[in-house]
Simulated scan of single mutants.
Amino acid sequence: MGDVWLLSRQDPPKDPRFEARVAVKTFHIDISEKLVVNELTNWLGLCHPRITPLLAIDYLNWHLAAVMPRMDGSLYEVITKKSFEPTVAMGIVRDILFALEFALGELGIYHLDIKPQNILWLNSPTNVKVADWGISRLASARATTAGMGNASATFTSAAGTPGYMGPERFDPEWPITAASDLYSLGLVASELVVGAFVTDLIRKHGFNEHGLTALNSAAAKVANQIGGSLGDFIAQCTALDPRQRPASFTDALRLLADR
């Protein structure tokens, strides 16, 4: 939906005590005004330590721009190089759940694009903040305006990131629930433990039923490998049937607290 620019300013010059570091997101001119307003309106209402804050709305080079603190990177950049111990990964997942639970309780919205690229970190990869609420929707919304089509169709009709969307996102009659974000987070949790694999599997198998099955098998393997609360969380959240996933973010947090 836009480009992110990393900016810094020193006032007075060359004095690190006065360095200001921000990131500015500009929105593409071909993005509908409704989507931009949706993101900015939701973002303004999300004040939580695990959510990247919106500092200001302005214009940059004649483009509407959102100003936010400059982060040190995303989890995607981290997990392409290393993995986390399960106990550390569980802490990261728990913090993401706190952010999702807050957004639902405060504004009644689901994120719907949870992926490593949208989990930013500051100072340490374990200090995470959820970013990019561009396609977030109210809890009363339906999954999408287009269906899955026939069984062999490639899934391209719903907004989100291929690989991190559960199959229910392509059923126009299926209501948006916590299950959709939990599916995405279950895959992210798997990648935290073993490193990035979702994008590679989608490239290999395609974003279709074969790809979903491959992702489900990979996540199940991780869950069996690590066991414990995080293993149970991954196994339940990545179930292809959303009715088999935790019923809420609160239930998911309880699952991580068990044992």
Rank of each mutant, 00 (worst) to 15 (best):
N127F: 00
D95W: 06
L107T: 00
Y59M: 11
G73D: 08
L64C: 10
G91F: 03
S124E: 13
S136A: 15
T126D: 13
D113I: 00
L60H: 12
T144H: 10
M148K: 06
T80E: 15
T87C: 05
A65Q: 03
R137D: 01
P69I: 00
E106W: 03
N150I: 12
L104A: 01
H111W: 02
N123S: 15
V128L: 09
P125M: 02
G105P: 02
T154P: 08
G73I: 00
D113C: 09
I79N: 08
I119W: 03
A65V: 02
A89K: 00
S152H: 10
W62S: 13
L107Y: 01
R137W: 03
N150R: 09
G108T: 00
A65T: 06
F98W: 08
R70Q: 13
D95C: 09
P116S: 07
S152K: 07
E85A: 15
N61G: 10
L100M: 11
L112I: 04
F102Y: 14
I109K: 04
R142S: 11
P86F: 01
M90I: 04
K82D: 11
K81M: 05
V93L: 03
D72F: 00
Y110Q: 02
V130G: 05
L64R: 12
I119A: 07
V130A: 08
A99M: 03
N127S: 14
A151M: 15
D113M: 03
A66P: 01
A99N: 10
T145G: 15
L104C: 02
H63T: 06
S136M: 05
D72R: 08
N127E: 14
P86L: 00
A103L: 04
R94I: 02
F102T: 00
A66M: 09
L60T: 09
G73F: 06
D113T: 01
H111A: 01
P69Y: 01
L97Q: 04
A66L: 13
S152M: 12
R142L: 15
S124G: 09
T87Q: 11
I114R: 03
S136G: 07
T80K: 15
